[in-house]
Design a binder for these strands. Structure first.
Lengths: 125, 125
DNA sequence: CCGGATCCAGATTGATACTG
DNA sequence: CAGTATCAATCTGGATCCGG
């Protein structure tokens, strides 16, 4: 299992890959979508309601992005009306665990972040 | 110490804050800058060389962003010529630990990511 | 030496309406 | 149900030149 707080020496090596992942989960709606899928597989319109007020277009874009990086699966059931189910892959679940660590960090450091922002605003514009 | 793989229930609460942090460390040059500062305090032109080929403007923008969130400190030494030293704060070091977890994830799942991208390209675009 | 100011191209996001 | 199409607005990163 991946440990955090490792000194990290090889940030340079796969640097672009890391950034692409960081950017992916940093997209506007990605964390919420992954969070909902972490509870279990969901269908398009379920996500549309759960991740409100996301638009259909942005949900599609977000899902396609996550799918293209192998973080979620898209399963089409050839029924009438059509059913499409989205779910986290194993890799996606692991990555969401790390995102959760960022959530934990944010909770712990929220005061510090706000203080820094206020101080920055005071010092500068 | 923050543990990863926590189920994460409160992603909604501080959701915007989490996203702002995710976006911050997902900025183009932020991981490299934090990586260099993790080794110890650096001056502007040192970073300019180490994080090449970053431009002065983007280094300034990146440093200001990280500073405004309390992830790095900016210390001006009133000498001639002026010296400015940048360093990670305690919160910044912790957050970089989490970023390192993403680096680890990327190393472990690089093959899966590439396979997913290839498969996605084949199926679609 | 350490940036700031200006201008610009491309990427991201959103509102709205429509379809197999 | 599960998306697409189109248009507009905003944000981001970069090139270049300027200043304390």
């Amino acid at each position: 299992m991946a440990e955090i707080a490792e000194p990290a020496a090889e940030v340079e090596s796969s640097c672009d890959e890391v950034r692409s992942i960081l950017s992916r989960v940093g997209e506007k709606w990605a964390p919420q979508v992954m969070s909902e899928l972490h509870s279990g597989p969901r269908r398009f319109n379920e996500l549309l309601r759960l991740v409100a007020p996301i638009t259909p277009r942005m949900l599609t874009v977000t899902l396609r992005g996550l799918e293209s990086d192998g973080l979620i699966t898209r399963t089409v059931h050839p029924t009438v009306p059509p059913q499409v189910e989205y779910g986290l892959t194993r890799a996606g679940r692991k990555l969401f665990g790390i995102v959760s660590a960022v959530v934990g960090w944010t909770d712990e450091n929220l005061a510090a972040v706000h203080a820094a922002r206020a101080a920055y605003k005071t010092t500068n514009g």
